[in-house]
């Protein structure tokens, strides 16, 4: 654990080394998120309430999504790069270390622009999410579960590269699909798409269900969220470990 903690600290220091770039990326991501907030305000202003969703509820969903994405893609930036790194044979350096390769990979890199998401989400929740002690606690639990689901799903999708080959193209697609689908309320979808959002692309567990948890707490929603977080984290770990048996070195010594 100490080695991983040290790796994680060095990843932060690495990102922090170029402070101007760090802050620029953080601010730009905040502006990016603000544009989405503006979009939803304009959308609901013009369209009105849609299937029980209005501006307030939508901003809650967006606050959870940005927080979860900030953790999964900012704090554990390599989660979305597992497929590319494996496909390019760039895991050699990681495999020589006396720590779990997946844990090391996740701790190895920070993405400052996505840290902007992590900063934006809680601020948006504080401003528009009606924070009370109970809602704050549920917001934290929901965001953490969403982050775990997203991280596990991205690792699983990236690990498929070790089975099917390529350079992680399917992981890129999975990443984009998960984020786009998680950006919209689950109630907007129906039929097969809705089933897919709970299974193949678990976008529902990343944002909509956590938002429902904060808005109307039930033990059933909590259990579903915790269960999905456990399932996708185990799926990611299992697929990565199984896939690593097929890993072929690219004779490239990188820092991953």
């Amino acid at each position: 654990m100490r080695a991983l903690a040290a790796t994680w600290c060095s990843a932060w220091l690495d990102a922090w080394a170029n402070r101007r770039s760090f802050w620029t990326q953080l601010v730009v991501m905040t502006i990016n998120d603000s544009v989405w907030v503006l979009f939803w305000i304009l959308f609901f202003h013009r369209i009105g309430e849609v299937r029980g969703w209005d501006t307030e509820k939508m901003l809650l969903l967006f606050a959870i999504l940005t927080t979860a994405a900030g953790i999964a893609l900012g704090v554990f930036a390599n989660a979305r790069k597992v497929g590319q790194l494996a496909g390019d044979g760039e895991l050699d350096a990681t495999l020589t270390l006396p720590v779990d390769p997946l844990a090391h990979l996740l701790a190895r890199r920070i993405d400052p622009s996505l840290i902007g998401d992590l900063a934006f989400g809680p601020i948006l929740f504080a401003l528009a999410g009606g924070p009370t002690p109970e809602r704050i606690a549920l917001f934290i639990v929901g965001s953490l579960c969403g982050a775990i689901v997203l991280t596990g799903f991205l690792i699983a999708a990236g690990s498929l590269t070790l089975f099917v080959g390529g350079r992680g193209e399917q992981a890129d697609l999975a990443f984009q699909a998960a984020l786009i689908l998680a950006s919209y309320p689950i109630d907007f979808f129906g039929g097969v798409t809705k089933i897919l959002l709970f299974t193949a692309v678990p976008a529902a567990f990343i944002s909509s269900l956590p938002a429902e948890l904060v808005d109307s707490f039930t033990f059933q929603t909590t259990a579903t969220l915790l269960g999905s977080a456990a399932f996708f984290s185990l799926l990611g770990i299992a697929l990565f470990r199984l896939g690593m048996r097929r890993y072929a070195s690219g004779a490239v010594w990188t820092r991953a």
Partner: peptide
Amino acid sequence: IVRVGFYAVILVVFAAVWNAAMAAN
């Protein structure tokens, strides 16, 4: 494939969003 797949996801999402929005209007 990634580009066209990405585009397919966008179409599915917006079809759902605008279907719901039009029904409400």
